[in-house]
Design a protein around this nucleic acid. Structure first.
Lengths: 252, 252
DNA sequence: GAGTGGTCTAGACCACTGA
DNA sequence: CAGTGGTCTAGACCACTCG
């Protein structure tokens, strides 16, 4: 007998002996998403059509799509179709910026780009992005303000290859959320991220940028974001002022 | 045909015009969990038996169970059965205490009860617990340490009715996680919680208890936990030392 | 009314566990 | 080997959207 010809799932450390059909279908759909066959905001083919195309039953396609919808890669809308999730929706943005006003009255952030330049990856960034130390990266520094109040100072590291051509001008030209622009202009869609939070005392530089006293308590947020197949594509080091805001999350 | 006899779903503000069968089955199973018909760690009846009991197909029961498993109320184990989730498992504890060592080397916390007494609910606690201001509550103060290093100072508020008879002695007698004891001894299982995080400067009392300098940055964590049907049953105000640890979470 | 996703059923067979 | 959950199929019908 030949070797296992499944190329849908990479073997990993513990090669599973059995891969259900719907997982293979899921991998095929994921590939279409990654490749840009179907674009963010657009519809994918109907269940019936995918079932015919892959030569499986509708129920099998459905199970694959249900998992992708649970992972926020797809959005199902009864009567209309199944759509590729996009960052150009307020709901999605809320999921990625967890800072909320204590009094519940939402206000929009104003985004100011302080800097955007090419650099060589320091060791820690390189490790997080699965690059070699010294490889080309892009560094963005930006400030989010509420009205006149600086609130979030971010330092964003991106792999140079994937974001070639990203400049301050392009960032300034495009308002709106960064992740929306990344998926439109660079074909890189952020799927999720891991965050590590600490309370720290404001250093001199950060304190000045955020207009707080040196030594003031700040929420430090380190994020590693990934795209399809858990490939890391962004490191973000943020400092949040939590005087009138809090970081909201759910556990359980 | 008679009127719709479903008493499984409460109408809510927007009474849904259509409630699928599997949701009604889900509500019936949830009731059994809430009532203690099936206890944490124990098995619920098999899919076939539930299908027969409720007079629906196995597939419908399966869909109800799948949702409950996705919400971490049930745990499915192929070949063995479906079990009621319990806090007496390390996996579950990790989900509720998000503090992790920076270097990845896990260490167990030592739990010391500083105080446990009856009190009257302040306004904010009362509101969070859906009590009237001044109603009986239990206040626990406790310290989690890593070796000799105090790391987490918690102030825990519980509704007096539900936790009648909870004393320092009972807390001390039972080691292990609080939530495990709550579900065993008081029949109240914590399902999930919302947390609000801020960076704050240590006040005098807190600084002394955590052996840090007054004004040192601390991670303040305010938690409201709920049991079945989203009923709030605990308010927790914590201060975390994040010198060598971080709060880990996922976004997306 | 045509087309989409959503529900429900019935049955066959597979993967896994434990006695 | 019996019993459990897991997969896959096929078909019927329902709820919803939109032209």
């Amino acid at each position: 007998m030949g070797a296992n010809e499944s190329d849908a799932i990479e073997p990993g450390v513990d090669a599973p002996r059995f891969v259900p059909l719907y997982r293979q279908i899921k991998a095929l759909i994921t590939r279409g998403l990654r490749d840009g066959t179907w674009l963010p905001g657009g519809a994918i083919p109907s269940e019936m059509e995918l079932a015919a195309r892959f030569n499986v039953s509708q129920g099998t396609v459905r199970k694959a799509i249900e998992e992708l919808a649970a992972e926020n890669l797809l959005v199902r809308r009864q009567g209309r179709g199944t759509f590729v999730a996009t960052h150009d929706e307020p709901r999605t943005q809320f999921r990625f910026l967890r800072l909320r006003p204590d009094d519940g009255v939402e206000q929009g952030f104003v985004n100011r780009i302080l800097e955007c330049r090419r650099a060589r990856a320091p060791v820690d960034i390189a490790r997080s992005l699965a690059l070699r130390s010294g490889e080309a990266v892009i560094l963005i520094r930006r400030l989010l303000s509420l009205g006149e109040t600086p609130t979030v100072l971010d330092e964003i590291w991106l792999p140079g290859r994937r974001f070639r051509g990203l400049t301050t001008e392009r960032l300034a030209a495009r308002g709106g959320p960064l992740y929306g622009m990344f998926e439109r202009e660079f074909g890189t869609r952020m799927i999720g991220a891991n965050e590590r939070l600490k309370a720290v005392a404001a250093g001199r530089e950060v304190a000045r940028a955020l207009q707080v006293a040196e030594g003031a308590p700040l929420l430090q947020v380190e994020r590693v974001s990934f795209t399809y197949d858990n490939v890391p594509v962004e490191v973000r080091k943020g400092h949040y002022v939590t005087e009138t805001h809090h970081y909201a999350t759910e556990v359980g």
